[in-house]
């Protein structure tokens, strides 16, 4: 259901007093939980719960002919499905702009961070390379699909394993090796939402409905120095230079915390295997 004008007004009134409907601080994330191996047919899969937002990410792999301009590099594809299962706002039919943008922002974060060594995904130059396909399914939409979707995608990639192949370089579907993908980092996307003149992180659906603009920033925290690898401004309201720099500072701080949580969870899972 559309968020009512009354609820929006209430949220804005509370923000003025420095409060949120669920008593969180402006930059506080909801409880994050990651479950692994959701589907044993997938090369890697995770269920990410961020408050009431739930997203499944599944990784499938196949061998394919490389693209002409990169004969010795693997292929990455990210797709997001906003299925009607997750919200009464979603409808069946061809992908709408919100699912296209969601998939492309997550794709860009993974691609531009160069976390996957695409050259190591080459089996035979010009003929066979690995294609990594990440499919995101929203199970329950309650705001901040961008950050939660990114966590689901990267944690599924980090825990995925190669399938077995035979001598003719054909994939033996359903049989897995124990070898993880060549991934060197864990890119994290943090999005700030602008409501009036305030910035909120990890909004619920109702809070997101009040926002006039958002800014997503993708960081890699694995190296000594933290770099920004991707950004996207959404919504119709513009930002001033200071607002942008302020958002980046805060996103970097909160991103580091999320990174630590996700990293610890993945390491624990990979060790238990």
């Amino acid at each position: 259901m559309e968020t009512s004008i009354l609820t929006k007004k209430r949220i804005e009134e509370l923000l003025e007093k420095g409060k949120r409907l669920d008593n969180r601080a402006f930059n506080e994330f909801r409880q994050l939980e990651i479950e692994y191996d959701i589907s044993n047919k997938a090369e890697g899969s995770t269920l990410v719960k961020l408050g009431d937002t739930q997203i499944i990410a599944g990784v499938k792999m196949d061998l394919m002919e490389p693209f002409r301009d990169s004969p010795n590099e693997g292929v990455l594809m990210v797709n997001a499905e906003l299925s009607p299962i997750a919200s009464e706002r979603f409808e069946m039919g061809p992908p709408q702009i919100n699912s296209i943008e969601l998939a492309r922002i997550i794709d860009r974060g993974i691609r531009e961070s160069h976390c996957i060594d695409m050259k190591k995904l080459c089996v035979k130059e010009g003929e066979k390379v690995w294609a990594i396909m990440v499919d995101l399914y929203i199970l329950n939409a309650d705001g901040n699909l961008l950050d939660a979707g990114n966590i689901a995608a990267v944690s599924a990639l980090q825990t995925a394993v190669f399938p077995k192949i035979n001598e003719e370089n054909k994939v033996l579907f359903g049989e897995f090796t124990k070898e993880n993908l060549p991934i060197s980092s864990l890119p994290i996307t943090i999005t700030s939402y602008k409501i009036d003149s305030r910035f909120l992180m990890d909004p619920t659906q109702e809070e997101e409905d009040c926002a006039k603009a958002r800014l997503s920033t993708n960081f890699v925290f694995d190296d000594k120095e933290t770099y920004i690898h991707a950004m996207q401004k959404g919504g119709e309201e513009p930002f001033s230079e200071n607002e942008i720099l302020e958002i980046i500072d805060e996103s970097m701080k909160q991103g580091q915390k999320i990174y630590n949580l996700v990293k610890a969870s993945i390491d624990k899972h990979n060790k238990s295997k």
């Binding site: 531009e112 920004i228 690898h229 996207q232 513009p238 930002f239 001033s240 942008i244 980046i248």
Partner: peptide, 17 residues
């Protein structure tokens, strides 16, 4: 002088941004 479009891909530090 507000910014109504901002996208980025690559690798950059905050100071350079």
């Amino acid at each position: 002088k507000k910014i109504s479009l901002l996208q980025l891909d690559g690798k950059i530090k905050k100071e350079d941004l």
